[in-house]
Measured scan of single mutants.
Amino acid sequence: HMTFVALYDYVASGETDLSFKKGERLQIVNNTEGDWWLAHSLTTGRTGYISSNYVAPSD
């Protein structure tokens, strides 16, 4: 899985979204569905959809 880092804080707007904080590391589970990616937070252990605009590759 690809690992990304959050560029900004994000508060989930629905049950399927994932809230995260700036600097949080996220593993991308599925990024084939446009701008919203299914991600797993390595910080909180939660999984949900994130906006690809809010993250950048961590490598």
Rank of each mutant, 00 (worst) to 15 (best):
L42A: 05
L26Y: 01
N53L: 14
V29H: 15
E33K: 11
S58G: 10
S41F: 02
L38C: 11
Y54N: 07
N53V: 13
S52D: 02
R25S: 07
N31M: 15
Y10S: 05
A39W: 03
N53D: 12
A12W: 02
E24G: 00
R46W: 08
S51N: 15
Y54Q: 08
G45E: 03
S19I: 05
Y49Q: 03
T43I: 08
N30G: 15
E24Y: 03
K22D: 01
F20K: 00
N53I: 13
S52G: 07
T43Q: 08
S58F: 15
T16K: 14
I28D: 00
T43A: 10
T47W: 13
V55A: 05
A6C: 08
A39E: 00
Y10C: 10
S13Y: 09
Y8Q: 09
N31F: 15
Y54M: 15
S51P: 15
E15A: 12
N53S: 14
E15Y: 08
H40Y: 15
R25K: 13
W37L: 07
A12E: 03
A39I: 05
K22W: 03
S19C: 05
G34N: 08
L26W: 01
A56T: 13
V5C: 06
E15W: 07
A12V: 04
D35G: 11
M2G: 09
G34C: 08
A6K: 00
W37M: 06
L38F: 10
G23N: 04
E24T: 02
P57C: 09
G48T: 02
T47N: 05
V5P: 00
D59V: 13
L7C: 10
F4Y: 14
F20M: 04
D9S: 06
N30V: 10
D59N: 12
Y49A: 02
F20S: 00
E15F: 08
K21D: 05
V5F: 07
G45C: 07
R25W: 12
I28M: 06
G34E: 08
S19V: 04
R46Y: 06
K21L: 09
A12Y: 03
Y8K: 08
A12R: 04
G34R: 08
V55T: 03
T32C: 11
T47V: 11
F4G: 01
G23I: 03
S51T: 06
P57E: 08
S13D: 09
G14A: 13
E24Q: 02
S52H: 07
S13F: 10
V55H: 03
S52W: 07
A12S: 09
S58N: 09
P57Y: 10
A39M: 13
G23W: 05
L7R: 06
P57Q: 09
V5L: 07
A6Q: 00
Y8T: 08
W37Y: 05
P57H: 09
F20G: 00
S51W: 15
T47I: 11
E33I: 11
H1V: 13
F20A: 01
V11L: 08
A6F: 02
I28W: 02
K21V: 10
T47S: 09
Y10T: 03
T16Q: 13
Q27H: 11
I28R: 06
G45N: 07
R46P: 00
A6L: 03
L38P: 01
T32P: 09
Q27V: 15
P57D: 06
S51R: 15
F20P: 00
I50T: 00
V5E: 06
K22Q: 08
E24H: 03
D17T: 08
Y49W: 14
L18G: 01
S51Y: 15
I28T: 03
A12K: 04
D35E: 13
E33S: 12
H40G: 01
S52Y: 07
W36A: 07
G14Q: 13
M2N: 09
D17M: 15
G34I: 07
D17R: 13
Y49I: 06
A39N: 01
T44A: 03
V55E: 02
K22Y: 04
Y54P: 03
L26V: 05
G34W: 06
E33H: 12
G34P: 12
S13K: 14
L18I: 07
N30M: 10
D9C: 06
V11Q: 11
S19M: 05
V11N: 10
T47R: 08
V11H: 10
G45S: 04
E33N: 14
L26R: 00
F20T: 01
V11G: 04
D9R: 01
S13E: 12
P57N: 07
S19D: 06
Y8F: 12
D9N: 06
M2Y: 10
V29N: 04
G48I: 02
W37N: 01
T44S: 09
L18A: 04
T32Y: 08
L26T: 01
A56W: 09
G48W: 04
W36M: 13
V29T: 06
R25Q: 12
S13Q: 14
R25F: 14
Y10H: 09
T47E: 06
S13A: 11
Q27G: 03
Q27F: 14
E15Q: 10
V11T: 11
L26E: 00
I50H: 00
H1Y: 14
G34K: 11
G14R: 15
F4D: 00
S52N: 06
E33F: 11
A6S: 05
V55S: 02
R46L: 12
V11P: 04
L42R: 03
F4E: 00
S19L: 06
D35N: 11
H1A: 12
N30Q: 10
D35T: 13
L42I: 09
T43K: 07
G48A: 03
T16D: 12
N30I: 10
N53F: 14
S41I: 02
Q27Y: 14
A12D: 01
A56M: 12
F4H: 04
D35Y: 09
Y49C: 09
T16G: 14
T3D: 06
S13V: 14
M2D: 08
L7F: 04
S13R: 14
L18C: 03
L38T: 03
T32Q: 12
E33V: 11
L18N: 01
G45L: 05
S51L: 15
D17Q: 15
K21H: 08
S41M: 01
R46G: 05
H1G: 14
L18Q: 01
V11M: 10
N53T: 12
T43V: 12
D17Y: 15
H40T: 15
G45T: 02
M2V: 11
V55Q: 03
K22N: 02
F20V: 07
